[in-house]
Design a protein around this nucleic acid. Sequence first.
DNA 1: GGCCATTTGGTTGTGCACAATTAAGTTGTG
DNA 2: CACAACTTAATTGTGCACAACCAAATGGCC
Lengths: 165, 165
Amino acid sequence: MTTTPSPPPASPPLPGAADDWLRLDRQICFSLNAASRAFNGVYRVVLKDLGLTYPQYLVMLVLWEHGALPVKKLGEHLRLDSGTLSPLLKRLEAAGLVRRERSARDERSVEVRPTDEGVALRQRAVEVPRRILAATGFEADEVRALSTHLRDLTAALDRAAAEGA
Amino acid sequence: MTTTPSPPPASPPLPGAADDWLRLDRQICFSLNAASRAFNGVYRVVLKDLGLTYPQYLVMLVLWEHGALPVKKLGEHLRLDSGTLSPLLKRLEAAGLVRRERSARDERSVEVRPTDEGVALRQRAVEVPRRILAATGFEADEVRALSTHLRDLTAALDRAAAEGA
DNA sequence: GGCCATTTGGTTGTGCACAATTAAGTTGTG
DNA sequence: CACAACTTAATTGTGCACAACCAAATGGCC
């Protein structure tokens, strides 16, 4: 972190450089992890009034933007699989914000549709982004730039994971 | 995604600006969320050989750097509370990587100490940072800069959450 | 001594992430 | 039609995050 750490020599008896690498690694993964959880915490506070959790809010954002969607499409938008979405959607249904119904055309598919109440909730959600942005203390442009960086990072990581390393 | 789905017509007279804000919000929180999970996925692959999960790896990094620590200190380093750490540490203890023992001086405190096996694991962890960095496709400096940005963001968010909004 | 606020971990309950498996429906091919 | 391959959700099991609550130990105070 002070000077450019030299590349780690495979695995010999732990030179000082290894410490630097591990320390750096701790910083990187930790800072991302911590930022994610910190965001989660602020959203938790802001969304409390709406009765939504952070992931539930993400789902509603997609539904507000695209209207009814099958679970599969929803998962593609959010990069979440059915193991995460199924119970989450059931809770949203129990809260009266969405309805889940099997498609008549393809009975494997389940359409998720916001109820009138779910659509109406959007009116109260409009102020959420402003409050979150205010909490970051960043300008909109800064956040947008950071967002772009993170998107690139995610794409690279997904690619690497797909290649098995 | 086949064609561009027309924006949900069932919505009340929201001004276009609100749509933009919600869409932007979706992008920001989504990109951070997705990056965090993508990182998690890559770490999952890389750490599989070591038998560690991502949060367990974070704990071991702190212990390798600082040696034995009480649970409280560990939680401060990682911003995690005992509700998260207790079961995690029990799993690490079951895996033989740490031992938990009540302090003699203050019996409220539990010291977490890496075992010989836990210390030895560090040798095999040395190559992890390089593999992760390679997966990002970023230069070390870029990642460092991003990390700094995220740390600022986290600090601002924590401050905002503490102030109740 | 007795009393009380504080500190420190632990426990419980709710919710999310994801891998692996299962079940049901659809499509293509003979 | 029969049947295999594929698609789509749901289910199950493990692990993490965090709020709320509880129990024990400490230390200061009278």
